[in-house]
Design a protein around this nucleic acid. Sequence first.
DNA 1: GACTGGCACTTGCCCATGCCGAGTGCTAAC
DNA 2: GTTAGCACTCGGCATGGGCAAGTGCCAGTC
Lengths: 338, 338
Amino acid sequence: MSEDRRLQVLRAIVEDYVATQEPVGSKALVERHRLGVSPATIRNDMAALEDEGFISAPHTSAGRIPTDKGYRMFVDRLAGVKALSAPERRAIETFLSGAVDVDDVVTRSVKILAQLTNQVAIVQYPSLTRSTVRHVELVGLDSQRVLIVVITSSGRVEQRTLDLGEEVGEQLLSDLKLQIVRATLGERLPEASVRLAELSQSFNPADRAVVNAVVTTLANIFSNERSDERIAVGGTGNLARFGADFDTAIRPVLEAMEEHVVLLQLLGEASAGTQVRIGHETGYEGLTGAAVVSSTYRTDGDSLAHLGTVGPIRMDYPSTMAAVGAVARYVGRILSEG
Amino acid sequence: MSEDRRLQVLRAIVEDYVATQEPVGSKALVERHRLGVSPATIRNDMAALEDEGFISAPHTSAGRIPTDKGYRMFVDRLAGVKALSAPERRAIETFLSGAVDVDDVVTRSVKILAQLTNQVAIVQYPSLTRSTVRHVELVGLDSQRVLIVVITSSGRVEQRTLDLGEEVGEQLLSDLKLQIVRATLGERLPEASVRLAELSQSFNPADRAVVNAVVTTLANIFSNERSDERIAVGGTGNLARFGADFDTAIRPVLEAMEEHVVLLQLLGEASAGTQVRIGHETGYEGLTGAAVVSSTYRTDGDSLAHLGTVGPIRMDYPSTMAAVGAVARYVGRILSEG
DNA sequence: GACTGGCACTTGCCCATGCCGAGTGCTAAC
DNA sequence: GTTAGCACTCGGCATGGGCAAGTGCCAGTC
């Protein structure tokens, strides 16, 4: 039996199962695909595929469905690339280019991605890590408290209120601000943190406590994971596609969608290009019935962030991957221009 | 037949139905509640209640369930107030007081509210409308573009990038900033808008275009609905409680939860105190199977915002109202202190 | 007049039953 | 290596009877 045909059979099984949501049998296979052999032959191939762990039978008298490993093989070696249609591409472009600011771009990206894929969409806000310091502001709220605001080249704004526990003069504050701006303006965030560390020397020892407090907070903002944590989620209504049982299939996913830390890790592992994590590969209990398709986008400032979709394992991978990839490209472009 | 007992019966029906999720019959009623009369008598009362539209029977041989009107009566006239337990109150307090900034307060509020009520929780970020201008910043990004940042007394930061379409000198920009700050600092947002309108007179006619563009954008930020639009949603996993049928019961709610505009209107109508909207009273098609319990919180700066829960109509109203009210009070307090 | 007990009736739910069809694995033949 | 045939397995579905819950009504009682 030819190795090649066996893979064709696997491909056909995945495609049919994704399309019909029902276990697929040998007879149906030869009818829907021109395999040129009889059902009996296919059955032999299927038995082999089952031995190798690519497919499994829910019960004796049913057809076969792909296993996680089967989907993995499909994605890696069998799936063609399904390009988006021109109208779809245009829809993405016009919809995204109508955005007024970074937040709006993210919001719209989530919406269009959810709509294109009929899945749950996740978009991370542009990361600070690679962006530079565009502005730092210290505002005295009252005699003891300072509001610290950082604006980055990616257009994001981070704020933190700091309670110093002692009186701070206006003079010190504006001195400090000047020094900070001088040291960090235009620097990338990690470098800015380094520069800050050298700063406190140049101040009067009496002021060190205040200076250190402010500097530490700033360094926190610059390097903090939290800055990268913001994420937008949309299209949760599409979770219907997961299956009927809310508690076992849908609820865990909904709960995961609210754990932004989990989502970030999920997206964050994506290195480059569009990548797929299937079932247990996600590494999260609640997502064993789900698959994650993710990609990265970058703005001109080298700022790098992730986006993707979460859907049922039995999804149309070629289309989903195409949509995720396309949206990632457009988001990157829009953010670089705007 | 006494009017009074009939209302007791309605109350009992609501309570039992909420507890068991099953239509309640006359016999079960007299067993669980000490009504002092026989099932037959109760049946007469139930028939009357049904005539008046407070309850209805799913089918002939089943018990009765409350109608929207029945729940309304229950909430308005029959429900006692169920105070939160001391541990619950303490949980709210300690959890919320651990928050590091406004965003964190909101995030935590959503979480605790969802947990307390086992429903979907919604919390609006503190509104700008009543807060004052604490800081305005204009930053030149390049020769033609300006980043405008507004910081309000509630600690919120709004930013907008403005493309002026013509060259702008540093001098003009800092002049403009000075004037703006002078005119608006400490003012409430609506008044600040008024002050801005008077501003452009004092500038050289050649600069009017730029000034007006900046001023208009600022006025937009001050008065814009969008500033009030931010909302956090959590606890969607609790939607399981709505019922089994995803597409008719759960999906519409999930979709409504993503339409923040809808949510704002829903919460926004709350005038004062804790308020309940039941089924069709929400005014939204997708929420006819849901009930909304909402309340308001205010910070010391008079800033006013809303929060609440969305749950199935058959919910424990007394507890939910207590939880929503309590969280609202604590959030207001924390934001006023911190 | 309000309440109660009794009773006939309705109706949804549960479950056992049996049939049907899809699909399989195996074997023997090509 | 492929195919046809065949016996077998098993889930899904429709059928139908029994059960339990609940109702409405009526006649009787306090």
